[in-house]
Nucleic acid binder design. Structure first.
Lengths: 107, 107
DNA sequence: AATACATATGTTATTAATAACATATATTAG
DNA sequence: CTAATATATGTTATTAATAACATATGTATT
């Protein structure tokens, strides 16, 4: 019986912390579908631009997204393939729990 | 382009929040391997018993663990199969990032 | 029923995360 | 070189999470 190696655990915690924020989670979820500029994210998520930029900076600092400049725009995309799995597995779990709860809660 | 449905998003956030704590992450990681009593978790994780119990209560409240009583002991186990995937995918990501960084950081 | 063991709960101080806002920088177009 | 657009950074107030500790409950055994 072993607990998680400290070095991996720290990284896992970090990722989970990043994902436990609705703004960042939605950013990653949208970028999972396609590359987007800051303004496009602002439009889709209907949040103040500084909040989007701030969270993109956090995601970038932890190597979850990268960007390239195109004209005036910064186009962001995901930087790590594994994160897709994490988000998708969790979405499955969420669907499962929510559907299960819906049943349980009926009548 | 759609953001995550609010009902699922809330559940996802909740799970990520639960997992972003080292104590809870390690509890789940150990329970992934076998059913354990509170005291066994205390021994493995070398943390004060109330802290373990407190976090088990949080995990139980969110349907991530259940327990059965056996004699004097409460034996806890995982309550949700999807969580395994989430933890494992994230561990893979963590290994990837940590190994990658190790290379990058050399020389 | 009393004791001991196993676990749970409640309280508080400390620390960290968040959103909101103002402002700054950088690039492009005129 | 100036204005406009796109994005980034800094500051602060508010709120939430955490760990640490004391204490309570609950069951088993005698």
């Amino acid at each position: 019986m072993e607990k998680i190696k400290a070095i991996y655990q720290t990284e896992m915690e970090r990722v989970f912390k990043l994902l436990s924020n609705p703004t960042r989670l939605n950013i990653l979820y949208l970028l999972e579908q396609q590359e987007l500029s800051v303004n496009e994210l602002v439009d889709y998520l209907d949040l103040p631009q500084p909040q989007i930029s701030h969270n993109l900076a956090i995601l970038k600092a932890h190597q979850l997204v990268t960007y390239r400049r195109e004209g005036k725009k910064n186009l962001y995309k995901l930087d790590d393939p594994h994160i897709l799995d994490v988000i998708d597995s969790t979405k499955k779990h969420a669907v499962h729990v929510v559907e299960g709860r819906a049943h349980r809660d009926e009548a």
